[in-house]
């Protein structure tokens, strides 16, 4: 099936009130800023956002937070020099936070996309983040049971797509994109350029089109 090429506003109209939205990017690298802007304009609220950070500066995810659309953030590293929007909301008790170690965050989404029910991870054993988690000793080492994180919608940024939705990324902007694309019921990819089918060497496709539902072209 061919991915639907559409506008940012039309693409994000799939996001419903109360949805869990996976947002790609590591800081601003790979952050789908124009999709975030469209989501603010479109208006769905009470969202749970899963992303590595909790917004940088005043654009992208930070702007969505500032617009009051987010109930909860699931991330590994909210506190940064330029995370003043999140910091203010958190200190005012206006947003929930679930901190997840970065590798567990990625693997929990990978598990969701791969149909894995749960997995045992050694990360976090003996730390405060182990509280309330089932643990098991396997081969003499302790592990914690971690559950998948599924999204209703994933908003990611890639470099180039073909019109089927096959994606290639650029440098470290790849980060969470390929994992998030597999972990949501609907994946929307913002790309710099859409090319015709056959123009991307199949050997270099990173995210196969099966994971991608909607494409939005934003020249960079």
């Amino acid at each position: 099936m061919t991915a639907t090429l559409t506008t940012a506003l039309d693409a994000v109209s799939a996001v419903k009130e109360g949805d869990t939205v996976l947002v790609g990017g590591f800081g601003m690298a790979g952050m789908p800023v124009e999709l975030m802007d469209a989501l603010i304009e479109y208006g769905a609220g009470d969202l749970t956002i899963v992303s590595n950070n909790a917004g940088n500066g005043d654009t992208g995810l930070a702007a969505l937070l500032a617009a009051g659309r987010v109930r909860k953030v699931v991330c590994s590293f909210p506190r940064q020099a330029d995370s003043w929007v999140f910091d203010g909301l958190y200190r005012a008790g206006k947003i929930e936070l679930e901190v997840v170690p970065q590798g567990n965050l990625a693997e929990r989404m990978r598990a969701a996309g791969a149909g894995i029910g749960a997995f045992f991870s050694p990360t976090g054993v003996g730390t405060p983040l182990a509280e309330g988690k089932e643990s098991r000793v396997i081969d003499g080492r302790e592990y914690l049971l971690e559950y998948p994180i599924r999204g209703d919608v994933a908003l990611i940024r890639a470099h180039i797509a073909d019109s089927m939705g096959n994606l290639v990324y650029r440098k470290t902007a790849r980060n969470f994109g390929p994992v998030m694309a597999t972990a949501a019921a609907l994946t929307i990819a913002q790309v710099s350029k859409v090319v015709e089918v056959g123009a991307i060497d199949p050997e270099v496709v990173v995210t196969p089109a099966i994971y991608v539902d909607r494409l939005v072209e934003v020249a960079r």
Partner: peptide, 8 residues
């Protein structure tokens, strides 16, 4: 504000 990143 708790923030762990990839340290663990």
């Amino acid at each position: 504000i708790p923030a762990v990143g990839g340290a663990m």
